[in-house]
């Protein structure tokens, strides 16, 4: 099983806007997937007006959805949607 692509969607924040990007490069998609899985165990925080991130991770065998708060997502992943 290897990661083919990751779709990153950011919603919420004070402005309540939604933005999406797709990472098709398998190496980068793999790095993001690893970062997302690590971040899933970190504190979600109790922020109001935080961003909400949804990751759709498509592998050779399955499609996985992971939702994280802005407090959880590492800066290098957030930068994909700046």
């Amino acid at each position: 099983m290897s990661v083919l692509r990751v779709v990153v969607t950011r919603s919420g924040g004070f402005a309540g806007l939604t933005a999406t990007t797709e990472v098709d490069d398998p190496d980068e998609a793999e790095r993001i997937t690893e970062a997302v899985h690590r971040a899933a165990g970190s504190p979600a925080g109790n922020r109001r007006d935080d961003f909400v991130y949804e990751f759709t991770i498509v592998t050779t065998t399955e499609t996985e959805h992971v939702e994280l708060t802005g407090a959880q997502v590492p800066a290098e992943v957030r930068a994909r949607l700046r």
């Binding site: 924040g13 925080g45 109790n46 935080d50 700046r82």
Partner: peptide, 20 residues
């Protein structure tokens, strides 16, 4: 942060970005 398009309340304080 940098080019941060948001403001939030973290449970203790307010946080303001500069926008992009």
């Amino acid at each position: 942060s940098q080019q941060y398009d948001n403001a939030y309340w973290d449970g203790q304080q307010m946080v303001f970005g500069d926008g992009d």
